[in-house]
Design a protein around this nucleic acid. Sequence first.
DNA 1: AATATTATGATTGATATTTATAATTTTTTG
DNA 2: CAAAAAATTATAAATATCAATCATAATATT
Lengths: 257, 257
Amino acid sequence: MIKPKELAAERQKSLGEYIRDRGVVRIEDLSREFDISSATVRRDLEILEEQGRIRRVHGGAMALESRLEEQMFDDKASIAFREKRRIAEKAMTMICNSETVYLDGGSTVLELARLLVNRTDITVVTNSLRAAVELSGRGPRLILVGGELRRLSQTTVGSWTRCLIEQIHVDKAFMGTMGLSFPEGTTTTDPNEAYTKELVMSRSAKTILLADSGKAGKVVFAKSGDIENIHTIITDKKFPAHLAKLFKKQGITLEQV
Amino acid sequence: MIKPKELAAERQKSLGEYIRDRGVVRIEDLSREFDISSATVRRDLEILEEQGRIRRVHGGAMALESRLEEQMFDDKASIAFREKRRIAEKAMTMICNSETVYLDGGSTVLELARLLVNRTDITVVTNSLRAAVELSGRGPRLILVGGELRRLSQTTVGSWTRCLIEQIHVDKAFMGTMGLSFPEGTTTTDPNEAYTKELVMSRSAKTILLADSGKAGKVVFAKSGDIENIHTIITDKKFPAHLAKLFKKQGITLEQV
DNA sequence: AATATTATGATTGATATTTATAATTTTTTG
DNA sequence: CAAAAAATTATAAATATCAATCATAATATT
């Protein structure tokens, strides 16, 4: 039985998938597995690298999917996905007709964005590229906040964001966070991101924090918001009681779903 | 079993379906299966590719990945793909080290974006959501222009875009267009989009227009740029000679690839 | 029926792809 | 640190595919 050689383009696709599956492969293996010369493997890898699909290393190639990004955004697989969705569902009920809302970055807020694809009555302002993509096809009127894209969070941050945010006013801002504690408030890893968050909260009538209990008590590098600026926190049942008490004492509405 | 010879158009339809079913086919197989010469197969494939129904590759043809997704945005990316990619490749050679470039919307410019995934030395400013997504993983420093998202083009437009664009200055702006004619210049369907385009061109040292020959002589609703503001036009060989002459007389560099 | 138009298939020089080999670079090992 | 091993790049030859051309067949037009 003579197996007809694969088409070059077809083979390159297969090669890419093969590499994605294994993570790393040596040229020797690819050459044997696909029954092509090492020169051809090299040329294919070169093409795949140009397309940004893989990264070539001495002796072979690596799959090029930033594990960090995957973990951060590998939607359904992430831990606490259920909690996050319930939190997002609760958040949605708080959006009234023809309101203008702000959507921050983070996986919980992204869940909220997904729930808004049929809300054509509202206006969404966001600095989250992922949220924007979710809502780009149909749904709310969508306003993107410009600025430099921060790769890790896939949000626009920095001084450019000011130009637009300073000119708007939203009814409700739905914010994510890395850490939530008392009395530090909300904290995040990147100062630019923190700055943008504070700015948004200052332009919003109400600030609603979406934070699963995993964030409770955590403090990371940069402060992104004062306790006083938060109106509502939506979290899950596992949120520590002592923290809940402290926040309530501050006049914050704390919803546990 | 001898089939009565099909009509050309009919056969092309069958060919298209055959390719969609298999995903990938080589010309040899199509020639045998449909009992036509390889020359005819090639001609048919050329037509099918022009219509954006398949993608031709060396040795055969491939079905397009996700037809549904593409059509969602009224995507013209797959028609005249070859011309568009060649134009984009030419455009890429014009981007020098550590430059800052602007990427407009449109399928040709989107092709250019795809070629920039490994250019970590440059900075890209764009109002195109799709270009942003292409470059969001890795590659150039990426700055998004904020504003209201126009669904059809997937670009941000309108007065919000001003806040950021007015504060920047780019080395080269790579612009798309719906129509290109003389003496009208570039035209597009949406006035907001036209406004944003003009603004960008005023903030760029050089404006490079990426326009396949299908745009030549077309005039649509809103004027998006004067002839005088264009420095270079990159188009394909089929660009009408009389228009080419006129543009060159205006001092515009016209590259036909 | 005569003619023009278009489609097809064969031919061929031009391109593109693959492989093998030699030269160079990088990595490993003693 | 240098020699050996391995991998990459560069080059050239062999092969396969493509695009242009032209003669012929099929179809449409007058």
